[in-house]
């Protein structure tokens, strides 16, 4: 049960948030021009890292805002929290 520093609301309990999986997977602008393989790469392939991972989180029971977070999945240490559209920090 970690504490997440929502970039809009501040520190809140993890139970208010939901995780949306890996971050920085951009939806292709022109899906129709992709092969089945390329589309599948976007649709299905996720890294699921043990260690430092860039993730999408949603303050579902709060401001409902989505944001990005850098978390070490092996010890839940949160290295950074930043808004959607902001450049990912170098960790």
């Amino acid at each position: 049960m970690f504490i997440i520093n929502c970039p809009y609301c501040g520190e809140r309990d993890q139970s208010e948030f939901s995780c949306g999986g890996e971050a920085h997977i951009v939806r292709p602008k022109q899906p129709t021009e992709l092969s089945d393989g390329e589309w599948a790469e976007y649709l299905f392939m996720r890294k699921n890292i043990k260690g430092v991972q860039f993730e999408r989180w949603n303050h579902a029971h709060g401001c409902r805002k989505w944001f990005n977070m850098v978390r070490d999945t092996s010890n839940d240490k949160i290295h950074a929290v930043y808004k959607m559209g902001e450049k990912p920090p170098v960790i």
Partner: peptide, 13 residues
């Protein structure tokens, strides 16, 4: 609602 918010905030801001 959560899915629509997701697209609005992340893919189509």
């Amino acid at each position: 609602l959560s899915k629509l918010e997701d697209y609005l905030q992340t893919e189509w801001p």
